[in-house]
Simulated assay, not measured.
Amino acid sequence: MNGDEDPEYIKRDIRVVVVEDHALVRAGMRKLVESFERVTVVGEASDTDQAIAVISELKPDVAIVDLQLPGEGGVAVLKEVAKLAPDTKNLVVTMYDDYAYIVAALEAGAHGYLLKTADRSELKNAILTVATGATVLDTEVAERMQRRWRDAKAPVVELTSRELDVLQAIAKGASNKQIAFQLGIGTRTVEGYVSSLLAKLGVRSRTEAALWAVDHHAIDGTAT
């Protein structure tokens, strides 16, 4: 898909809140995002407390969040948004590319992680992607995560077709209830599949399972 084309699933304007502590950067980010078709900036914030208040009140489709914020920081914002505005998808846009920052953000509820070196089309595509509940990672970040997985020398994992279905849904941000509805099975059955997946993949959380899926091309149904 071309970076300036809107996917077919976009039916209305995506409402966005921009969270960035530097005024000039925030203004530039807002102007850039507002230049995208069918994307509307409905609010902004400059620190942790303000971000939590604005996002919980406006409940935007997407919150663009920097990690370096006055107060408790961006990770704290992600955690609170997950509780107060669970339908809001968090897109981290930051200068930090360290593994620890990436994992902390994803574990806290980020649906996407972009570096500030990203270009216009990458930012637009990231907003459109996370708005659907799917996960998106900056190319450099994804490569860093892949190297981490390769260094771990994980054994080959064999998944059943149903486990692969569940893993793909997790990677796209679906909850257990959503997965149950999509697959026509019970929520408890989904919980069983999730537990089995975490054990088979040797990971501790749904976020790590989603990262495994991205690294091993499981999203397209060809896990390796």
Score class of each variant (00 low, 15 high):
residue 26 R to E: 10
residue 40 T to P: 05
residue 147 R to V: 13
residue 136 V to W: 09
residue 39 V to K: 06
residue 140 E to I: 11
residue 73 G to Q: 08
residue 184 G to M: 05
residue 157 V to Y: 00
residue 67 L to G: 05
residue 98 D to M: 14
residue 81 V to M: 06
residue 210 A to R: 03
residue 15 R to K: 09
residue 112 G to W: 10
residue 161 S to D: 15
residue 28 G to T: 12
residue 165 D to C: 04
residue 181 F to G: 14
residue 1 M to K: 05
residue 141 V to Y: 06
residue 8 E to S: 13
residue 108 A to G: 06
residue 68 Q to L: 13
residue 196 S to Y: 00
residue 126 A to G: 03
residue 35 S to V: 08
residue 45 A to F: 02
residue 41 V to Q: 04
residue 67 L to A: 05
residue 199 A to I: 09
residue 39 V to H: 01
residue 201 L to C: 01
residue 79 K to W: 12
residue 29 M to Q: 15
residue 199 A to E: 05
residue 167 L to H: 01
residue 24 L to A: 11
residue 33 V to I: 09
residue 185 I to L: 01
residue 147 R to D: 11
residue 171 A to H: 08
residue 129 T to E: 11
residue 201 L to Y: 00
residue 152 A to E: 10
residue 221 G to C: 04
residue 103 V to I: 03
residue 168 Q to W: 07
residue 224 T to R: 15
residue 210 A to I: 07
residue 119 D to R: 02
residue 138 D to N: 01
residue 144 R to V: 15
residue 163 E to M: 02
residue 57 E to M: 12
residue 80 E to C: 04
residue 113 Y to G: 05
residue 109 G to P: 10
residue 206 R to A: 06
residue 169 A to V: 05
residue 147 R to E: 10
residue 36 F to Y: 07
residue 13 D to L: 10
residue 117 T to Y: 03
residue 13 D to S: 11
residue 79 K to E: 13
residue 216 H to G: 02
residue 11 K to M: 13
residue 143 E to T: 15
residue 87 D to N: 14
residue 86 P to C: 06
residue 127 I to Y: 04
residue 185 I to P: 03
residue 151 D to L: 11
residue 93 V to F: 01
residue 2 N to Q: 12
residue 107 E to F: 08
residue 137 L to Q: 03
residue 125 N to G: 14
residue 220 D to K: 15
residue 136 V to N: 09
residue 220 D to G: 11
residue 188 R to Y: 11
residue 79 K to R: 13
residue 3 G to T: 09
residue 216 H to F: 06
residue 94 T to H: 00
residue 139 T to L: 15
residue 94 T to E: 03
residue 92 V to P: 05
residue 59 K to L: 08
residue 191 E to H: 02
residue 47 D to P: 07
